Simulated assay, not measured.
Amino acid sequence: MSESVLETNYEGLELVHRGKVRDMYAIPGHDDKLLMVATDRISAFDVVIDAIPGKGKVLTQLSLFWFDLLGDVVDNHLITADVSEYPEACQPYAAELDGRSMLVHKTQPLSVECIVRGYISGSFWKAYQKNTTVCGFAFPDDLQESDKLPEVIFTPSTKADLGDHDENISVNTMEELLGKEMTRKISDISIELYSRAADFARSKGIIIADTKFELGLLGEEKKLILIDEVLTPDSSRFWPLDQYKPGKGQPSFDKQFLRDYLSSLDWDKNPPAPKVPQDIIDKTKARYEEALEKITKG
């Protein structure tokens, strides 16, 4: 079994942020760039749970695939993922960085995360069961779990710090934070990205039920671009098309498998996380790898 990369520490580079999965570094002499490293950490319910060997490489390769496929919808922060082209300060760590890192433009991330939903599942399904108006959207009262929604919807959320929980907000609240015109632009971009990706993934036998994008502002002109990871099993729900049956939860290629296991435990979903059995780690790893294989190669 390959060794997991749970945490990185690179002398000569400045760690500027350690997130749930990614470690971000500033590079001396390159103030407009960042090194983004996808570790093998896996989080659920906004808590870092464990490590899935090779997961960071799966996330990186999928993101690179989608950046290329969707590049005509909106520009993104990728400069290169070729380690040989990274600045000299990164070269001592080339072996570990290869396949799990990107050199990216430094941006000002938006204060909201951009969630797009095509199907009703997860926390959204739970909220719908209590009230058929969710996040400002009124839905028919006869939807079943995992049903396709009448239309693709944009439901933003606030960003959480490590260990905290993201919080859904209404589009009206987002307009108060970012303005109506910016909110409309972000919503249009997010829905177009999801719709294009969902159509492509369906041709590969995968339903993308929902996903989360992050956008940022680049340079003095504050150009809106796509940042972070995109359309990975960490940020999306991937369901096998040939097993899709509304009215219940779906089998998945993403970390819902891990979430389901954790939900079966007597755990309050706050740190510290429970120890995850090796077979759950192995099965989660296999699902991530299958998603990469199906989407990028089919």
Rank of each mutant, 00 (worst) to 15 (best):
A198G: 07
I207L: 13
M182D: 14
M102R: 14
A201I: 06
I169T: 07
P92D: 00
A95D: 14
E85V: 04
K126C: 02
V116E: 04
K106T: 04
S146E: 06
E167D: 12
Y128W: 12
I169L: 06
Y119I: 06
A89G: 06
P156W: 10
E175V: 10
F154W: 00
D75P: 10
F137Y: 15
E145R: 02
V152F: 04
L78E: 14
Q108K: 15
N76P: 13
V112A: 07
P156R: 00
D188F: 03
I120E: 02
L162D: 11
K185V: 09
C90M: 01
G163H: 08
E151I: 08
K204L: 03
K180H: 15
S123L: 06
N168L: 14
I153V: 15
K126R: 14
A94M: 10
E176D: 15
F200Q: 02
E192V: 06
E88M: 11
G163F: 09
T155L: 06
L193N: 07
R117H: 01
D82C: 11
K148P: 05
F67W: 15
S111V: 08
K204I: 02
F154A: 02
D142C: 10
S195R: 09
A81K: 06
K159P: 04
S195N: 11
M102W: 05
K130D: 11
E113H: 10
S123I: 04
A95K: 14
S123T: 06
V104W: 08
V116T: 12
I169P: 09
D82N: 15
M182H: 13
C135F: 01
D98V: 04
S146K: 11
W125G: 06
V116N: 09
R100M: 09
F137I: 15
A197D: 06
K159F: 01
E175P: 05
Y86P: 03
G136I: 05
Q91P: 00
F137W: 13
L70C: 07
V152N: 02
D164A: 12
D68Q: 13
L149R: 00
L149P: 03
F200N: 07
A94L: 09
T155C: 04
Q91C: 03
L143F: 00
E96F: 00
F154C: 03
I120L: 04
K148S: 00
E85T: 09
L177S: 11
M102C: 10
V152L: 08
T107G: 09
A209G: 15
K159V: 03
D166S: 11
Y86A: 00
D147H: 07
F137D: 12
Y93P: 07
M174Y: 01
D188G: 08
V83S: 03
H105I: 07
E145H: 09
L69D: 05
T107F: 05
T183R: 07
G163R: 12
N172V: 14
P109K: 12
